[in-house]
């Protein structure tokens, strides 16, 4: 167990930098308006970040060589995508995903 002084300093430091990253844009953009070019760039953030989280879960990283396919997640993604198209309901989609992966792990 690391010393409590070390733990506290580290947690305080990490908390402050994280909080500033989250809050500073809110403080500045209350007064300022983003230039059109920046706003256009940011309009792609949701699409790209959601896709990036999903796609990165489909592989297992081995730095320095090609990523290997994470078949469990690829298989579980298929019924999840189908349930998204059919239900358009986020809760149904999440539960379908969880049950799919649980079944895959149970059966293999």
């Amino acid at each position: 167990m690391p010393s409590s002084e070390y733990l506290i300093y580290t947690i305080v430091g990490a908390s402050i930098v994280t909080w500033l990253l989250r809050v500073l844009p809110f403080i500045f953009l209350k007064k300022l308006t983003l230039p059109q070019s920046v706003a256009e760039f940011l309009s792609f953030v949701p699409l790209v970040i959601m896709a990036a989280f999903w796609f990165s879960s489909l592989f297992t990283q081995e730095v320095g060589s090609l990523p290997t396919v994470n078949w469990e997640n690829v298989l579980a993604s298929t019924p999840t995508v189908v349930s998204a198209v059919l239900s358009k309901n986020l809760l149904v989609i999440v539960i379908t995903g969880v049950i799919s992966l649980a079944l895959i792990r149970f059966l293999t």
Binding site: A51, W54, S57, S77, T80, G97
Partner: peptide, 15 residues
């Protein structure tokens, strides 16, 4: 399969 809840959420939100 709970670790897939987050991935499922991103799939759903992306779609």
């Amino acid at each position: 399969g709970l670790d897939f809840a987050m991935v499922g959420m991103f799939i759903g939100l992306l779609y």
